[in-house]
């Protein structure tokens, strides 16, 4: 199989380039893309990429594989390899630190903006803040996000305005706290989202939905936020 990997070492390379490597893949096994990277690293230890849990939980190995973002560790070859060729690039739209490792600062700055924590000034009860099963259910499909950045880096609105548009990952978290019955800061949260960029730069193209390795739907969450903003203002 031919594997084409994006390589860039700012200390030695003038510009990024694609390195083509012919790789012997063990027969009869449907390896994950992360396994392929591990095989490549045995050949060339200078290849840099992030990985940790190797089971789709930590969100470290977000990559662009044959043009589509996903987690290398849970994406089988059979799903992405086309015509015996695999092209691996870093997540698009973020600055590359080295090879497949990107600088996630902009992504985290947008995440930070939505205040991704419970805001409740009431004195904490002795045991815990209770929530009805129905209210708890409202958080399903929101809290599971692992912040791998596959969605935001597949979003053209985030590519063009990464410092202004919060992006699908940040917005699904924003709605996770807007929808939480225990949170008391809904008004302030919405006031911070009402500008023309933070939420409304979403044009609903749903790349985020198509790439999310956890099967979440950020576009739907953004729709809910938009409805809250419209209700608040009409």
């Amino acid at each position: 199989m031919l594997v084409s990997v994006y390589r860039y070492n700012p200390e030695t390379d003038n510009a990024p380039y694609m390195q083509d490597i012919e790789l012997e893949v063990p027969a009869g096994k449907d390896l994950m893309v992360l396994d392929i990277l591990n095989l490549l690293k045995e050949k060339d230890p200078s290849l840099a990429y992030r990985r940790s849990c190797r089971e789709g939980v930590c969100g470290s190995d977000g990559l662009n594989m044959n043009g589509k973002n996903g987690l290398g560790c849970i994406t089988p070859m059979s799903e992405v390899v086309k015509k015996d060729k695999l092209v691996i690039r870093p997540l698009p739209g973020l600055p590359v630190i080295r090879d497949l490792v990107v600088d996630m600062t902009l992504f985290y700055q947008q995440y930070e903006k939505v205040q991704p924590y419970l805001i409740n000034d009431q004195p904490a009860p002795a045991i815990e803040r209770l929530q009805s099963p129905e209210d708890r259910e409202k958080l399903d499909g929101l809290y599971e996000c692992i912040l791998c950045a596959c969605c935001s880096t597949s979003c053209p609105s985030f590519w063009w305005n990464p410092e202004k548009f919060i992006g699908p990952a940040g917005l699904i978290q924003a709605y996770r706290f807007l929808a939480d019955s225990r949170d008391q800061a809904q008004a302030e949260r919405l006031a911070n989202l009402d500008d023309p960029f933070s939420v409304f730069r979403c044009r609903g193209i749903m790349n985020c939905v198509s790439v999310c390795p956890k099967g979440l739907n950020p576009t739907k969450a953004i729709g809910h936020i938009r409805n809250l903003l419209l209700q608040r203002a009409t």
Binding site: A191, D194, F200
Partner: peptide
């Protein structure tokens, strides 16, 4: 913190969206 903008039609994204 909300992003500020002075060149869009209304001052708010919801307003522009509605228009």
């Amino acid at each position: 913190m909300a992003v500020s903008s002075i060149t869009n039609l209304g001052r708010s994204g919801a307003y522009d969206w509605m228009v």
